[in-house]
Simulated scan of single mutants.
Amino acid sequence: MARLTPPRQLEETDDCAGFDCGRESMNQWFRRHAWRNQQIDVSRSTVIRDAETGMIAGYVTLSVGHIEREYLPKSSQRNRPENIPIFLLGQLAVDTRFQGMGVGRSLMFYALKTAVGMAKEIGCYGVLTHPLDDDVRRFYQNFGFEQLPHDPRRSMIVRIKDLVRNGFDAD
């Protein structure tokens, strides 16, 4: 079993070319855009690597954004501004050689704890994601994500206050 590093921000010297999660669109995004997006302050990618080989075992990408109030459940729309601040969990992928080892779970915990920590400083409603398929959707549901009922993209969100209630603010 590989010994894995703690999550850390992607570095220019990391070898992204060998990463293969089994989804070519996500591989290509990571290889072509992750580092560039970081350079221009659009998003941050965090990686977990194999401590021996340096291979990237998985990555998660976070950025900030907003959703329109109308996409929230009716019970959450009242007394909210038109644009609701969110963190966007844009990408989360695990290399096929490391799948089933808890890398995705570790990256998700890292992303959610990071979002909660930042929300304490700047305020934010939740973490939004756009799952690619129903298997990915079920993975996110395990972390409290719920489908936005009025969003045609079938986005999912978990509220910061629910993450705090479930212990994601603990050190």
Rank of each mutant, 00 (worst) to 15 (best):
S106K: 14
L132G: 14
I122P: 05
L112A: 01
F139E: 02
G123P: 06
V116S: 05
E121G: 06
R138Y: 07
A115F: 06
A115T: 01
T114I: 10
V136P: 02
V116M: 06
R105M: 01
T114Q: 15
K113P: 02
D135S: 11
R138M: 14
L132N: 11
R137I: 01
G117Q: 08
V116H: 02
L112V: 00
C124E: 08
F139C: 10
R138L: 14
C124R: 08
R105A: 03
D135H: 11
V127D: 04
K120L: 13
D135L: 09
A119C: 05
D135T: 11
L112I: 01
H130T: 10
L112G: 01
G126F: 00
I122E: 04
T114C: 15
F139Q: 06
Y140G: 12
M108P: 04
Y125R: 04
L112M: 03
I122Q: 15
F109I: 10
A111V: 01
P131H: 05
L132A: 15
K120S: 13
Y140A: 08
Y140F: 11
L128K: 05
K120H: 14
V103I: 07
G104P: 04
T129A: 13
I122A: 09
S106H: 13
F109Y: 07
A115K: 02
M108H: 02
L132F: 12
R137A: 06
H130K: 06
L132M: 13
D135Y: 10
F109C: 08
V103W: 00
F139S: 14
A119P: 09
I122V: 15
D134N: 11
L112W: 00
F139M: 11
R137Q: 09
R138S: 15
G123H: 07
Y140P: 09
V116D: 11
M108S: 06
Y125M: 08
H130V: 12
Y140M: 08
G104M: 04
P131S: 08
Y110L: 10
L107V: 02
Y125T: 13
D135P: 07
P131T: 07
L112R: 00
L107M: 09
L128I: 10
Y125K: 00
R105K: 04
V136E: 10
F139V: 00
A115E: 06
G123N: 13
Y140W: 05
P131Y: 08
C124I: 11
V103D: 00
K113M: 06
M108V: 03
M118S: 15
E121N: 12
I122R: 14
R137F: 01
G104S: 02
A119Q: 13
K120T: 14
M108Q: 03
H130W: 09
V127W: 03
Y140V: 12
V127A: 04
G104F: 08
L107D: 12
Y110K: 03
L112K: 06
D135Q: 12
V116E: 08
H130F: 11
R138E: 15
V136N: 05
V103Q: 00
G126D: 00
K120Y: 13
L128S: 10
T129N: 05
V136K: 04
F109N: 11
V127N: 03
G117M: 04
I122W: 14
L128R: 13
L107I: 07
V127E: 02
F109V: 11
A115C: 13
Y125G: 01
F109K: 10
R138K: 15
K113T: 05
S106C: 13
T114M: 14
C124H: 14
G123C: 06
M118R: 15
A111I: 02
Y125S: 11
V127T: 09
G117F: 12
L112P: 00
D135I: 10
L128A: 11
